[in-house]
């Protein structure tokens, strides 16, 4: 769901060890990279390495049918053109219903396909959902090995709150990191004198830096990135001057990493 805000369709690359997704948004401003290791699943089996091209907008709509306590099983057969999602029916709300969303065609660029909704109080205690598969162009990323000048680690809830609040005030934000201070500010929101008075490091913020960094970013994207905050208690902001920001959420068996090109020029 976090990814679908940024990219409309992408390949889930599946192998024996993990599921990975990497996709750039249409404007080439942001990129999202996700990995979930096999141990992160209750059960996991991949007999053959294969890409699952998925329309994330459709997938998100299908996922909204699940409740948090539902266990979701994803299945794709060899040569199949659908991804099958099965929700167990622990939830009383869904248990009497059978939902079948079915559509065909491998072209993920087509508009949201028609679907059929079948409901019956007599059908089994499972929800079956199918979404069509397509192939997307993979992205090579030799770049993520980049060593960054700064790394700021902070509670993800704090980051979410900051970017959400600042997005009410403006369209972009400046992130400055010096030895003892990380300042995330709407440009010209305060006088520099006020800034000096308010400089402090909130609890749970760790700054690692080799060099002072000052970059400006679109808040719209940062707000979208921050929607992954529920996946991890901490978020890392990795920055060097004049290179894309890396916003990294690591969880036990994987990660979601978002890259954002900075604003450039004067």
């Amino acid at each position: 769901k976090s990814c679908s805000i940024l990219v409309t369709d992408a390949n889930f690359e599946c192998n024996e060890e993990n599921i990975m997704l990497q996709a750039m948004d249409n404007s080439h401003i942001a990129l999202v990279s996700v990995e979930i290791g096999a141990p992160g699943f209750t059960s996991y089996r991949c007999d053959r390495t294969m890409p699952l091209g998925v329309d994330l907008t459709s997938l998100t709509k299908v996922l909204r049918c699940a409740k948090d306590e539902n266990i979701c099983t994803l299945k794709a057969a060899d040569e199949a053109d659908v991804l099958n999602l099965v929700y167990d029916a622990k939830s009383a709300f869904f248990s009497p219903f059978f939902f079948a969303f079915m559509w065909h065609g491998r072209d993920a660029s087509s508009p949201f396909p028609p679907f059929f909704l079948l409901c019956s109080a007599l059908l089994p205690l499972f929800i079956h959902l199918n979404i069509s598969l397509s192939s997307q162009t993979p992205i090579t990323s030799s770049w993520p090995e980049t060593k960054y000048d700064t790394r700021v680690t902070l509670p993800s809830a704090e980051f979410t709150r900051i970017v959400r609040d600042l997005s009410q005030l403006g369209e972009h934000v400046r992130i400055e990191v010096s030895k003892e201070v990380v300042r995330i500010s709407k440009l010209k929101a305060k006088s520099s004198a006020e800034d000096e008075d308010n400089d402090s490091i909130p609890t749970g913020v760790v700054i690692e830096m080799n060099q002072h960094v000052s970059l400006t970013f679109s808040l719209k994207y940062l707000v979208n990135f921050s929607k992954s905050g529920s996946l991890s208690g901490e978020v890392q902001l990795l920055m060097s001057n004049d290179v894309p920001l890396l916003v990294a959420y690591d969880f036990t068996q994987g990660y979601i990493r978002c890259y954002l090109a900075p604003k450039i020029g004067d």
């Binding site: 990129l31 992205i139 972009h172 679109s218 894309p244 090109a261 020029g265």
Partner: peptide, 14 residues
């Protein structure tokens, strides 16, 4: 004023 940069050059489509 600043302009929005792009990721081209950092990531390439295969």
């Amino acid at each position: 004023s600043k302009q929005q940069g792009r990721l081209d050059g950092f990531f390439t489509m295969k």
